[in-house]
Design a protein around this nucleic acid. Structure first.
Lengths: 115, 115
DNA sequence: CTCATCTGTTAGTGAGAGCTTACGGTAAGT
DNA sequence: ACTTACCGTAAGCTCTCACTAACAGATGAG
């Protein structure tokens, strides 16, 4: 349950979001990712470590280079959490609308007379 | 596009996540939320401000108290972004699998590597 | 009007995150 | 074996963020 924290924290940083979005097009190496980003290559490497610890990407050695790739499992877990939360929030929202409607309808109850 | 940044950054903090999850059950006041959380009431108030600026919650004055409530729109926008990103990542993932198969088995047209 | 309750805001502090530079290690090419 | 290319990690610095304490505003009850 708490592993979502790492995923959200990982995607919170704009630079890390940029790295992650670049990986959406396909697997890429570290230097390739750093090229075009306003940060140095070691910074990208650190960001990739965070993304990897969060379960959002996987890395594989391809010769001297190291290719990173999005892990659909981690992204799927995040999506599942958001979906579950989404339905709960919608239910609570609908219930609140009903509650307000019942409250606005003047019943034989004396608690909150409208000004 | 960049407003997602605020949403992700807002949900990155564990305390803010706790506040947000408590609001999933229904609208609540500030003091009610602070009760049971390991932080002071002003801290909760600040977190609610961040969540409000991120478009994740809405506030309404109810007498002297201030009731906060989850904004389905903000949560929906976040979900939409994640869904769009989800499909793109899946497509790239499948394409990568195909590419690897073709690379490992260049000569035969069979896409059935028994390995 | 006065007092109590509830809340938002500000100032200040301490911890943590992100960046760069420098270094060490591994793989391919000459 | 030497050189080049690519990458991860450690040290150091800066700066943002989350928290508490104290203050200011608004509402309801008496």
């Amino acid at each position: 349950m708490a592993y979502n924290n790492a995923a959200f924290a990982a995607l919170a940083d704009p630079t890390r979001r940029a790295v992650f979005e670049r990986l959406a097009d396909g697997p890429r190496a570290v230097g390739d990712l750093a090229e075009g980003l306003p940060v140095s290559r070691p910074a990208v490497s650190q960001h990739l470590k965070v993304l990897k610890d969060a379960g959002l990407v996987t890395d594989r050695a391809e010769g001297a280079r190291r290719v990173y790739q999005i892990d659909p499992a981690g992204l799927g877990a995040m999506r599942a959490w958001l979906d579950r939360f989404w339905t709960a929030a919608l239910d609570a929202f609908a219930a609140e609308i009903d509650r307000q409607n019942n409250e606005l309808q003047p019943k034989p109850e004396r608690e909150d007379p409208p000004k």
